[in-house]
Design a protein around this nucleic acid. Sequence first.
DNA 1: GTTGACTCTTACATTGATGTCAGGGTTTAT
DNA 2: ATAAACCCTGACATCAATGTAAGAGTCAAC
Lengths: 130, 130
Amino acid sequence: MKIGELAKLTGVSVRSLRYYESQGLISPIRQANGYREYSPLAVETVETIKLYLNLGLSTEQIAGFLHCVLKNKEAFCAEVMPLYRSKLEDIERQLVELNQIKRNLEERMASILQEQNESSLGACKLENLE
Amino acid sequence: MKIGELAKLTGVSVRSLRYYESQGLISPIRQANGYREYSPLAVETVETIKLYLNLGLSTEQIAGFLHCVLKNKEAFCAEVMPLYRSKLEDIERQLVELNQIKRNLEERMASILQEQNESSLGACKLENLE
DNA sequence: GTTGACTCTTACATTGATGTCAGGGTTTAT
DNA sequence: ATAAACCCTGACATCAATGTAAGAGTCAAC
């Protein structure tokens, strides 16, 4: 199939399919006219690439084990587990950082609301003093 | 004070101080020789900028309320609260997404470990059959 | 007056997957 | 045979704060 058809079948843009190829993730053969010709299996390959991209892995990392996981189950690809571990560490670091910022933001918001309440209370007291 | 001194006092690079100026965050006067001359108050200004950058706000957003918060308490700067709210929403979206990826990763890791255990158990059984 | 430490402006690089456009070829259907 | 719809490559843009470097001016100390 041609690139446009693969794009439709997978929901991945033509631009991205070409990019995956430039990163060594997929290697369609070329027809005499220069057009890329994809095997029907390419659909599964692209779905697999999407899956790993959604896990936050880079195309470079995916390139390191894609051939293996397309042939075997993940458990038999030694490269996968270390990547998962380090990605998980990344994510945990990001979670810590985001939660710190979140707490900081919430504290600042609470303190603003409190000050505003106090000043409006002050205004009420003044009103009540009439 | 000159830019190098302010950089040392605040821990912010000379490059970044010039960038903050280009974004309208700080406006040192110029001496006859063209050098930037910062008031001692600039230290507090830069510390304030650092604080908001660490909250994940952009220089553009900071530019929108910095003048106000340098003169008043945050609670009196109407621009701040909406920014905090939308930043908090951003962060919560990111937290949800990261947690989804984390769960996904953990499940995949668990399933790999389980398959590996099963196959090594299988190997043990075979060994025990001698 | 020379050297070293500052400062100035301008500009390119970084990161990574994707969008978009230009300029040109191919195919398909009418 | 012509128009529409595809395909090709190459290249620039995106986002944002920061690093880095070149080329040139300034200042301080010795």
